[in-house]
Nucleic acid binder design. Structure first.
Lengths: 343, 343
DNA sequence: GAACCTTACGCAAACGTTTGCGTGTGGAAA
DNA sequence: TTTCCACACGCAAACGTTTGCGTAAGGTTC
């Protein structure tokens, strides 16, 4: 089994020095044309590829971006990654993806691992547990070692760095407004517990929209779901005999689960109850009825995040000291789940 | 801005040699207890972490697994990655994920990039284009340089290496049998073009099942979809006025799209037409009606693939020379889309 | 033939580690 | 006082690169 060929081996075979080989491959004028050609031919023959590790060590940078997300099996996050990869590949960067699995410890471990030489900077959406614990030492430590961090989606206000977010409250308000505009009056919200930043913001947007329409908020219309994986039972309980004409769900899963429960109760979507979701994933698109939703433009978020990071990585000191927060526009995607006949 | 602290800096501060620091941190008996404690205290204070890059260079291994998949925004592939990560983390490996986007060129580029120092071995599902082109030089080259490769799902028969697959034909046969067993006689299949290995295998399984039941295969019941992203129009055209009582779809998207088209035609699933899919993703689970399907156990595939790879990486020569093909069991998940009333 | 200039290459340091071996210091034994 | 032995530490090489600088060989100029 062949081993990877190095400069040293080529040098030995051709009876020249390592530096000659290195320079020849780079077409340095220091080396005679003859030698250059010989070396290059030999290198091609043996399929020489410079060793990235050695280059990283020498250059003190890895040309690699570390991405840490709470879940890997998650449509929104993968679209973001898609965007990151796009930009990264264009600019000659590699992407390492790690999932924290919503665990604080795993987030810390992954971050430390990547920070100790494997990546030049981070794109990060923090784990649920991290938001709960409010322990951000690993992020601060990483930044204090000179590695830029870009936070996206689930961000942390207390940390000063580049951020890419959507205006969750505004998106939620738009969603709720849409329900109001088609004549719904009794609008329930299925949301997460408050320590999830985006959940709280979306709840706020919902409340804001109601207030703007002078509709009193009702405790009984708000369900804050704790255990996302078992949301069905909570939603079932919540929806039982509830007199509502619309539901705003802060994510796809809540939306389709609600649809399912309504279906079981013999209620029709959208005629009896309209539904609007958040995040334009495959579920919303392919569900029957297809779900009206707020698109988060995950790929754009990834693109912007990657650009911010690479700017920091390649920028001079001036750029480095200035932090930006990019807000990605959301927009309402009209589908069947909010098409009232009375409209 | 602090920079990352190195052994050299600690050594200078403490006025000892680099090797003393290194040994002290490793609790070498060569170093006096006093010095050891001093060094360790200092290292902790400055949050010293050994530089992975330097270690990789020295050890000639990176403790990193490269995973290349055709698509990142894809439920099945992400579940596989989840499995890989699980095992990798347990064994102290890092995981780098790259997507080829189903492009041959990107697959080659990613592979070469990772092969030149960033990863010790690969877990790979080949791009559609690669299957079409039948050009596998990059994989062969990587293997000939001593880096183990594990192929999964979309594998290549011609390449001799470890593989993790499901028995696609058998799974398809099981699916078709199920349809037959509930009384369906006119079973259509929505499949991919033949150069996609898994698609072809599933088509074969379908045909095998029909033959076993002595049902003649009909050309008009078979749709080979070329452009997956625009499958809806093809399916619509195909299903128009077709007299069938069941559909076997080789993936989720085809299954739900068929359901949607049927819905538009006023046909009921499962009463008029039963549907069975392949791959147990979120769509199948949450669709109304929920879809009966063949589970591929993506996470298990990832786990097995990672284990095979790590065995190769850490094994001695004996293990290295022997290649295994692991076949993961599929199983039928009964849901509503095949619950005939007549049953 | 001396002085000088090109040309074409090699040396060595550096990136941050690890580790086998060499060595200076001190104390104990003879 | 000499010899010897632990003990505690430093040296240097190695992993694979890149690159500034030094230098030998050969040619040109006067």
């Amino acid at each position: 089994m062949k081993q990877k060929v190095t400069l040293k081996q080529i040098a030995k075979e051709l009876d020249v020095s390592i530096s000659t080989v290195s320079k020849a491959l780079k077409d340095s004028v220091e080396i005679s044309l003859d030698t250059r050609q010989k070396v290059k031919a030999f290198a091609k023959l043996y399929n020489y590829k410079p060793n990235n590790i050695a280059l990283s060590l020498k250059n003190r940078k890895t040309k690699t971006i570390g991405v840490i997300i709470p879940e890997i099996v998650h449509h929104f996050f993968t679209t973001v990654i898609g965007g990151v990869e796009k930009v990264a590949n264009e600019k000659g960067y590699n992407v390492i993806i790690c999932s924290s699995n919503n665990s604080f410890d795993k987030e810390v471990i992954n971050m430390e691992m990547l920070a100790s030489g494997s990546a030049d900077g981070f794109i990060l959406s923090v784990a649920k547990e991290t938001q709960l614990k409010k322990d951000y030492h690993h992020i601060e430590e990483t930044m204090s070692q000179g590695m830029p961090v870009v936070l996206f989606d689930r961000i942390i206000d207390e940390i000063v760095c580049d951020k890419v977010i959507i205006d969750d409250a505004k998106g939620a308000q738009t969603a709720t407004n849409h329900l109001l505009s088609i004549g719904c009056k009794k609008i329930a919200i299925l949301t997460t517990v408050d320590y999830i930043s985006v959940g709280k913001l979306r709840t706020n947007g919902y409340l804001r929209a109601l207030r703007a329409y002078d509709i009193p908020e009702k405790e009984e219309y708000i369900l804050k779901i704790e255990d996302i994986d078992n949301c069905e039972s909570e939603i079932k309980e919540f929806l039982k005999d509830k007199d509502i004409d619309a539901i705003f769900a802060v994510n796809e899963l809540f939306a389709v689960t609600a649809a399912k429960v309504l279906d079981e109760h013999g209620k029709k979507v959208p005629d009896d109850v309209a539904i609007i979701g958040f995040t334009d994933g495959i579920l919303s698109k392919h569900f029957i009825p297809s779900l009206t939703t707020i698109s988060q433009h995950g790929e754009d978020m990834g693109i912007r995040a990657a650009k911010l990071l690479i700017d920091k990585l390649e920028g001079d000191e001036a750029v480095t000291e200035e932090y930006r927060t990019v807000i990605i526009d959301t927009n309402l995607i009209h589908r069947q789940s909010t098409k009232k006949n009375k409209e």
